[in-house]
Design a binder for these strands. Sequence first.
DNA 1: TGAAATGTTGGGGCG
DNA 2: ACGCCCCAACATTTC
Length: 484
Amino acid sequence: MVSEKRHTRVIVWMRRALRVQDNAPLWNAIKDGHEVIPVVCLRDGPRYLVDSPRRDFIRSALRTLDRELRERGSKLFVRVGSPEKEIPASAQEYGAKAVYAAHVCDPQALQRDTIIASSLGKIGVQWQTFQDRVLFEGGQITSGSGLPYRVYTPYMRVWRERWDDAPRRLPAIRTVVSPNVRTVEMSVFPWFTAAVDSRGESAARRRLKRFMNGPIHAYRQNRDLPAIDGTSKVSADLANGTISIRTVYWSAREVQEGADRKGRENIDTFISELIWREFYYQILSNFPSVVDGAFREEFRDIAWHDNRDHFDAWAAGQTGYPIVDAAMRQLNSEGWMHNRARMIVASFLTKDLHINWQHGEEYFLRRLADADIASNNGGWQWVAGTGTDASPYFRIFNPVLQAKKFDPEGTYVRTYVPELAHVPLEMIHEPWRLHADEQRSARCVIGKDYPARIVDHAAERELALRLYKPGAARGSTSRTTISS
DNA sequence: TGAAATGTTGGGGCG
DNA sequence: ACGCCCCAACATTTC
């Protein structure tokens, strides 16, 4: 057996696991003594992740991954084309006996996996996925009757009861043995030399360490303040696999060991956020139709007022509501948005502009470096009130109150909306209330230097309540107005 | 992980 | 001293 295995070649498809350490498919291939061929598929055509922060993140991470592999005696084997074609083709070409990959749960990827598995089956190659992206898979945390949880709180309770059973970090990998087979060199890609390796597993570990040494100890009070650097910032690393959830979770647990009662509360709050992520993965696995529309059927046919101009103003950060505009400009410039701000802009799109949350979901997927189907869909459905959580649809955020509460000094707004730099703090979150002379002295004339509000929150709140009301006129009026 | 409207209470000013 | 009103503060209900 052992001597047979020594010469067995296994392809490890590195999708959504762009790292060497604590990587379940890679570690399983190596521990069994196989020759390992770490493969990525790149679609370098014009449509592939166009102008996307996620594309930039992945390119930078790939460069780092290639280097990390070379330092261990291997390298990244690049295939240009779709995984459906390239994974079976590479298995054939390299004479691999098996293909290993991380287990995923979004319907599109699963459908693609089915095609790949079938093609591999025809040429006698084994297809195997490994739990890697979550601590507990969809079927592992269920109610007494074996059904999946649909509500966060009971799910979270059971999850915490079992939190010692979460899989541990995997042993460090020092060498990766690969055969000498032909491949495209990464350096042929024009972007490869330009890509900086600011992203990748070592950067991710540094980011995590920084968080565990500082911000996590005040997480509970600071995590909701977008002007403060109080969150982990590892979302993009988790989404693209430059760090593993095991590493993040057990690092937090270790920090918690040495903490006092108050410190433990902070870390518990952080772990709750990880459990939200697990919860939405579990929801997507068990209810894949959430990607097509509202989880709760009674909200599947709301009469949205999809309006292109309103959507464009929202997307560009030109709504006239400073907190909304600051947040959208942060997203557009950084490929990341603070979580509190995500909730505020999502509420504004759905409850103030009455635009179908799915348009917002799509925009976030395109603009976020941490774009992740499960968390993104879950978050949007939560805010829209269409989701699993019993969150009432009439939970409508007031953008001015939210801003005063979570950006009390106006620092976040001023950082991303420079037009408001000289507006006094009392009016920073509602500059339209400035008198004409005050606007002039603040060098911020509403409608000229900074947009007038595109809608009135109080009036739109009333309309939102009517649109969501059971029995309200249904049927989307203009679902096709916005498509981009 | 909401906000607004409505209800209740209790202290102080005041005739 | 007393009743009355006002209103802030807080609680509850409603959307």
